[in-house]
Write a protein that binds this DNA or RNA. Structure first.
Lengths: 211, 211
DNA sequence: GACCATACGGAGACAGTCTCCGCTTTGCAA
DNA sequence: TTGCAAAGCGGAGACTGTCTCCGTATGGTC
């Protein structure tokens, strides 16, 4: 009676489990070396399984990525709790969380792209992960806002996207590191400290009123 | 002897010219509708020419994009001069220039990607264009910095990449408009006004071994 | 040991990029 | 005009990558 309630999940066959984890191992290496656009069939070949096997386990690239990121989720959650525990200054905590997120989003070359896409098409297997981190960001942010360490008009989603954008700028193989740092710094002045809303050109009347 | 000096350029045949401009017309429409990843062969077909013809005129996607952007270059330069002429406040001028750049970088869905890539691989046909705009940005920026309207540590390249990153966030079909605005605003507080350098987490004395 | 659900492999359909080469068109010169 | 070389054209097809389908193998269970 392995099958109790109606929609019970059956434990997969052992060869299936073995294949799955092996594919993940290989994919991790392959994506690290070739970026997330590396060929899936190549991964299958390298893992010594047929293409069908790969696609049965992971119907598309995003699914595979999501599985790989799930493995890193634990690390990131650990880091999150660590920051919460050890950083008393809520603004500094937010900064550190964003930094951790930034490193997470740079795990593979090209990763920011599907992550951003997942943020607007919630059918993606990555969507849930992203949404979760947006929520976490929001928590850090709200704490900082309560303490007057972050501007009230900023949203967690904005910061998350900002982090992705910065990771995106870094591009392949840490190309534009210095500009990425500059962007992070600029972004920080954008959220840090309680201040009035900075105005955008498109918001402002054409005559900027001399701040 | 039509050939005078060694490396003389021969005026292309009339059918070639006709094809070239027609391909550009079609490509403009096709990229507008399908984003820059739209199939090149489809463009050829839609233009009623063979694939060979398309690839002879534009050896790859970037070359085609570069040609399309060259057509818009004139508009952007006009805008630039207009801003220079009509905006006395140098910081506001910079903001308006960045806004214009942002609209330029959103001409087609997905455009920011090759633009950013061109900034690090200068073999790309887009590289020259980008470099030019970085220079323009630098000029606006330096004027603002002289007037104390922009922080001294910021570079034109950083701002250009920031604009690209914001355009990238907007994603396909203006998806994340509000976040894009938020980012622009944050970025603005990053460059505007002379202030001390904001610190990044990674700059900070971050003891990796257990902060 | 038999049975069958589960999983496997890989051939191949499909789509996109890009090249190659035989044929056509253009423009110049006689 | 006519002839002809250079310039340009078209599209078949090589190549690469994604993803499906189905005949075959295998693990787990009774």
């Amino acid at each position: 009676m392995s099958e109790t309630t109606g929609a019970r999940e059956r434990r997969p066959r052992t060869d299936a489990q073995r294949n799955r984890t092996h594919i993940l191992d290989v994919a991790e290496r392959h994506f690290s070396e070739h970026g997330i656009t590396g060929s899936l069939d190549a991964i299958a070949k390298r893992a010594g399984v047929g293409a069908g096997t790969l696609y049965r386990h992971f119907p598309n690239r995003d699914a595979l990525l999501a599985a790989l990121l799930r493995a890193r989720d634990e690390d990131l959650m650990t880091r999150r709790d660590e920051i919460r525990r050890e950083e008393a200054d809520s603004a500094a905590a937010l900064a550190q969380w964003l930094d951790a997120l930034g490193r997470w989003a740079t795990a593979f070359d090209g990763l920011p792209e599907p992550l951003r896409a997942a943020l607007t098409e919630d059918s993606s297997p990555l969507a849930l992960t992203c949404q979760g981190y947006v929520t976490d960001t929001d928590e850090f942010l709200r704490a900082a806002q309560r303490d007057g360490g972050a501007r009230p008009e900023v949203r967690g989603r904005d910061l998350f996207l900002g982090v992705l954008a910065t990771a995106w700028v870094r591009g392949a193989a840490m190309a534009d590191e210095s500009s990425a740092r500059a962007l992070t710094a600029m972004m920080r002045s954008g959220w840090a400290g309680p201040a009035r809303i900075a105005r955008t050109v498109s918001d402002a009347p054409h005559r900027p009123d001399q701040t």
